[in-house]
Nucleic acid binder design. Structure first.
Lengths: 229, 229
DNA sequence: CTTAAAATATGATATTTATCAGGTTTTTAA
DNA sequence: TTAAAAACCTGATAAATATCATATTTTAAG
């Protein structure tokens, strides 16, 4: 198994603040696994007892509402850590993590990381920083969900996806989501997501062929996200 | 000015993990202030550079949406800390904090707390814990906002308010909010909040006289929050 | 290659919610 | 105490969104 010390991925997250010795220890007790597209990395209600470092692939973080509908909270990509909350509280996870495409992850047990948290303040501050950023994102997300229309939210989602995952040479967003995935991110019915995507296409804000989406007029989408429509 | 060492409020938050010496230092550099009802404790876009400890009163945390509408994110009460995020990032606050009634707060400058974070792992873990809990709350809030109807959200809000602030001898919730406040928590128009409160009253789920609200049938409200209506 | 299943699409309709408009009551300040 | 302002309330209507029904296209499996 590859060693954390040599893993380039750690440069993208808090693990970069670990010393060489700490990394060696972490490396010794980590495990790796592959999660196939559509399978769970972890499930709501289970204890995860450690953090996952995403080496490759994209992971959808979601939660069931009491209404029985699924809401996607976040998309996690290569280089991100997930499961930080399990370090702190002993409660089972309140979230699902599902592979959107084949996922390569490392798992570091809780005790190991806690040991580092207690001894390495720089590492701890970095983890605090991550949580703080997530919290800010989440708060902003609440405001959007509460105050924006479905159309605004979909426009915003498209912009954010392009930002986060980039495009290929042809300008197509480097992430293929089903209409249902879009609906679950935006918090709407699948039919509504489909209709709005078609509307955006008709208005030449974007074009798509199946799941391949290319944004043609980002400014226009931005306007819509801000409520000018 | 009163001393942190003798302040009973700190028992309710992470500050309880500070040692006597640390508390003496904190106490020496803290400042106190009163914020009158309706005034800002701090404003979106300003740098706060420290944390506030709420000694008395209730504070509304909110954010303007791009649509120009206000969304209340959280209600903070006696014993809570607020502003933890400013410890970590240097960005200005993305939130407003407004006094719902007269507020008595202490302010502890950032540098002082960071010093303690670096030297006291128990304190740090407690702050991490707070952030993690907030994040969980926020995530749940996102799901509610995205997936529940206004009626469900209002019912849930009422239950949560009673939980958090309790009731007086007459069973009236210990917090007086305007209909507009309710609308901003639930994320709806003021008229809609009014209509639904009236509907709940008609169904004898609650009774109210002005801003004094008494829940009569908590199970019934719970049912509605879960989507049975 | 063929067929069944899943995903996408679109129309019709019902429901939810916002908006506007006009009241009444309560609170605030002079 | 009284006038003005703010908060509250209700109805009518419009807009947004969900739901249901059904057709088409795409994908997956045999």
């Amino acid at each position: 198994m590859s060693k954390c010390q040599q893993c380039i991925i750690r440069q993208f997250n808090s693990l970069k603040h670990l010393s060489k010795e700490e990394l060696v220890r972490v490396s010794a007790c980590k495990t790796s696994k592959i999660v196939k597209k559509g399978e769970y990395l972890f499930e709501e209600g289970t204890r995860i007892n450690g953090i996952f470092c995403i080496k490759d692939g994209i992971c959808k973080v979601s939660k069931m509402s009491e209404n029985g509908r699924n809401q996607t909270i976040n998309l996690i990509k290569k280089g991100d850590l997930i499961g930080e909350r399990s370090l702190i509280s002993d409660e089972p996870s309140n979230l699902n993590a599902i592979a959107l495409n084949d996922l390569e992850v490392c798992f570091i047990p809780k005790e190991e990381i806690i040991r580092d948290l207690k001894s390495n303040p720089t590492f701890t501050m970095s983890v605090l920083n991550d949580l703080a950023k997530s919290l800010k994102n989440s708060d902003n997300f609440v405001v959007d969900m509460a105050q924006k229309t479905v159309k605004q939210r979909l426009a915003e989602t498209l912009i954010k996806l392009e930002d986060k995952f980039g495009t290929n040479d042809a300008g197509i967003i480097n992430l293929q989501l089903s209409r249902d995935d879009f609906a679950n991110i935006v918090g709407t019915a699948t039919e509504s997501a489909i209709r709005l995507l078609s509307e955006f296409k008709k208005k030449e804000l974007l074009e798509f062929k199946g799941k391949e989406i290319k944004i043609l007029n980002p400014k226009g989408l931005e306007k819509i996200a801000q409520g000018f429509s």
